[in-house]
């Protein structure tokens, strides 16, 4: 398999069930299969409640599946210890959330560096990379600003820089433009795709917006707990 075609993230027959308020079992994911290659961008669409965010939580092992397995960059996740899962997660995956999830006590640069700190990598190279990423997202003049002073688009750009600081193989973006106006959303989406290409990171994008979904190399729809290729 060529480097570009190497699978960096795979879900095999993933099952996830929840208990309903009346005690009934709701099967959100029902044998979902998906594989993402290095540098590939993939969009996931689906109706509200179809399990898109749940799928992202399950493949990132933030929520454990009730069945099936998840593979990160060749490592089958259930076979490694929880300590190793945490370390591999920070190495392999980057996250961008709809609500930005920035730490209000930290300035822009500190927020980006926090992801490197958790991985135990904090030094001059990481600081230079963080500054470089923030420069690429156009925030080179806002390094010492607190998140509270930034606009929604700027916050999401900080979150993108944070997601890429550890050079992840895959970036998981859950409705990254959901809180932004049309124009800002378009800019952020373009930035996200561009940076992922530059970093040769795969992108798994959950979005409701069909135009943004079409910009990805591949589009899938989640329906009835399974993926349908489009």
């Amino acid at each position: 398999m060529s480097e570009a075609g190497r699978s960096v993230l795979a879900a095999r027959e993933v099952v996830k069930k929840f208990s309903g308020p009346d005690g009934s079992v709701i099967e959100v994911l029902n044998g979902a299969n998906l594989s993402v290659s290095q540098g590939e961008s993939l969009s996931i669409r689906g109706e509200s409640g179809s399990g898109k965010s749940t799928f992202l939580n399950v493949i990132s092992w933030l929520d454990q599946p009730d069945g099936g397995s998840v593979v990160w960059d060749g490592t089958e996740v259930p076979r490694i210890s929880s300590r190793e899962i945490a370390r591999r997660r920070s190495e392999v995956l980057g996250f961008v959330f709809q609500s930005y999830c920035l730490m209000p006590e930290l300035d822009v640069l500190e927020n980006v560096l926090m992801a490197a700190r958790v991985l135990g990598r904090i030094g001059r190279p990481e600081k230079e990379r963080a500054e470089n990423l923030l420069c690429q997202v156009g925030l080179q003049d806002r390094l010492k600003q607190l998140p509270g002073k930034l606009s929604g688009g700027e916050r999401q750009r900080v979150a993108i820089a944070r997601a890429l600081i550890n050079r992840p193989s895959v970036l998981l973006a859950d409705e990254p433009t959901g809180n932004l106006d049309e124009k800002t959303a378009d800019t952020v989406m373009e930035l996200l795709l561009h940076l992922c290409r530059d970093e040769t990171a795969a992108l798994v994008l959950v979005t409701h917006n069909p135009l943004f979904a079409k910009r990805a190399d591949r589009q899938v729809t989640l329906s009835g707990g399974r993926f349908n290729d489009q």
């Binding site: 990132s60 933030l62 929880s82 300590r83 945490a86 370390r87 997660r89 920070s90 190495e91 995956l93 996250f95 959330f97 609500s99 999830c101 730490m103 926090m114 992801a115 958790v118 991985l119």
Partner: peptide, 16 residues
């Protein structure tokens, strides 16, 4: 609460 979830996403263990 959400920041605690974020820390987990960034690779933090529950003990940390």
């Amino acid at each position: 609460t959400r920041e605690i979830g974020l820390l987990a996403a960034l690779g933090a263990r529950s003990g940390q």
